[in-house]
Each structure stands twice: as C-alpha cells, then as structure tokens.
Simulated assay, not measured.
Amino acid sequence: MTARRTHPARRRRWSADVTRHSDALDLEPGVFASDDPHQIAESLKRSAEASTRRKSSPFRSAMSMLVFYTNRAGRHLSQARLQTLDRAKTELRRLFGRPG
C-alpha cells in the first residue's frame, strides 16, 4: 500500500481558490490586516452590501467570510489576533442591528 500524497502548494492554496471562484464576497484589499475590529466589520459590511456574487443576506455573507477566514487561519493566529477577530464578529452583529 502506498501513502497518499497531495501537492503541498495545492493543499495550502485551496482556500484562496475558494475565495476567488466561489460565490464569496469581493473583499477590500487588506481587510483582515487591520487591528481595529470596527474597521474589519465595516469593510465586510460594505463588501457584503455591494456584492453581486452572494447568495444569502449581506449579514450572513459577511459573517460567513469572517468565520471562514478565522477557521482557515486559526492555528496560525495569535491569541490577540483571534480576540480582535472575535470582537469584529460582535461589531458586525451591531452594525447589522443583530442581537448577540
């Protein structure tokens, strides 16, 4: 029996490919580079409201993209960065007038 091998570059880039070719949002450059949860949330909100590629509501699309990013980069993010992204979720709910 031989071990199954996957091409490392392909395995590492699949989430970028999903982001580019799926019904994902067209994000503003550097949206996740900010240290300000409010800026991240506002950028995601703008992208979700302007997107023609989304399938669900702007809130769900924006939140899904934030969760997708957190899940894909999670083990490589510092605790402080994860907290910033978690606060961005709270801020996104506030911007859309959602409880939580």
Rank of each mutant, 00 (worst) to 15 (best):
A62V: 06
M1Y: 09
Q83N: 09
P37V: 01
T2M: 01
E28K: 14
A3R: 11
S47T: 09
S15I: 11
L66T: 09
T2Y: 04
A88R: 04
L27M: 06
D17I: 13
S64M: 12
M65H: 07
I40R: 03
E91G: 07
A48W: 06
A33E: 03
T90A: 05
R72W: 12
A73R: 08
S47L: 01
D23N: 08
F32K: 05
I40V: 09
P29L: 12
A80V: 15
D36Q: 11
G74W: 13
S64E: 02
A62F: 07
R54G: 07
R75C: 12
R46I: 00
S56G: 15
R5A: 10
T19C: 07
L77Q: 05
R46V: 00
R10H: 15
N71A: 14
R12D: 11
R13A: 12
P8D: 02
S56K: 14
T90M: 03
S56T: 12
H38G: 01
S57P: 02
T6M: 03
S56E: 04
M65Y: 06
S64R: 11
S51A: 11
A73G: 09
D86E: 03
A9H: 15
L82Y: 05
S64W: 10
T90C: 01
L25A: 09
R20I: 15
W14P: 10
A3T: 14
R94T: 15
A24I: 06
H38V: 08
D36K: 13
H7F: 14
R13M: 14
P29K: 10
W14T: 15
